[in-house]
Simulated assay, not measured.
Amino acid sequence: MLRDYQATDAEAIVRVALAAFAEFEPHFSDWPLFNANVAKMPGLAQTGEIIVAEDDGRIVGAVAYIGPKAKKPAFFDPAWPVIRMLVVDPAARGKGVGRQLTEECLRRAERDQAQVIALHTTPIMTVALPMYLRMGFVKTGEAPDILGVPYAVYVKTLA
């Protein structure tokens, strides 16, 4: 079940985010700094909409949808809505949670009458990146590295 984030969800989404990114520790040059930034995920509610996924009353995933007019990193076109911080609890993977959260962001972009939606990701995310590509996202350029890990911008044209 998907629903909008509530302030009381903050601790749970931070726990899920930290667990979701844990496997990437060897890739980042400053893991404590990366984790500190991941733990700021609830702050994305200030500029966007956080969507949470629940399974049996437990939060198993989350994503931030940053609308077309909201402030976003400079490597994105300011008019684009952006998907940020898609996280799924490792114990809940393989059930389509990431895809459902992404599809909800696509619905919100269409609601906002956006022509495209964007995200940035990295090849080390060997589950997320192929999912985005299957969903029609196309690489459009590079994004700044994050602590030694290369990232790129991907966009999907909306109907």
Rank of each mutant, 00 (worst) to 15 (best):
V116D: 08
I117S: 11
I117V: 15
A118F: 07
L119N: 11
L119F: 13
L119I: 01
H120W: 14
H120V: 02
H120S: 15
T121K: 10
T122D: 00
T122E: 05
T122G: 01
P123K: 13
P123C: 04
P123M: 13
P123S: 09
P123V: 13
P123F: 10
I124Q: 05
I124G: 05
I124R: 14
M125F: 08
M125V: 06
T126H: 02
V127L: 15
V127F: 04
A128G: 15
A128L: 10
L129V: 09
P130L: 06
M131P: 03
M131R: 00
Y132I: 12
Y132D: 15
Y132F: 15
Y132G: 12
L133I: 12
L133D: 07
L133P: 00
L133M: 12
R134K: 14
R134N: 10
R134C: 01
M135K: 02
G136P: 09
G136W: 00
G136C: 00
F137A: 01
F137N: 04
F137L: 10
F137Y: 14
V138T: 12
K139P: 11
K139V: 07
K139G: 10
T140Q: 14
T140P: 04
G141I: 02
E142R: 02
E142P: 09
A143P: 12
A143R: 08
A143L: 11
A143W: 04
A143S: 09
A143Y: 06
P144L: 08
D145F: 08
D145C: 08
D145K: 12
I146W: 11
L147E: 09
L147C: 01
L147N: 03
L147T: 09
L147M: 14
G148V: 06
G148M: 12
G148D: 08
V149P: 04
V149F: 08
V149Y: 07
V149K: 14
P150K: 04
P150H: 03
P150E: 02
Y151C: 04
Y151L: 08
A152I: 06
A152Q: 14
A152M: 03
A152R: 09
V153C: 11
V153S: 05
Y154F: 15
Y154L: 13
Y154C: 05
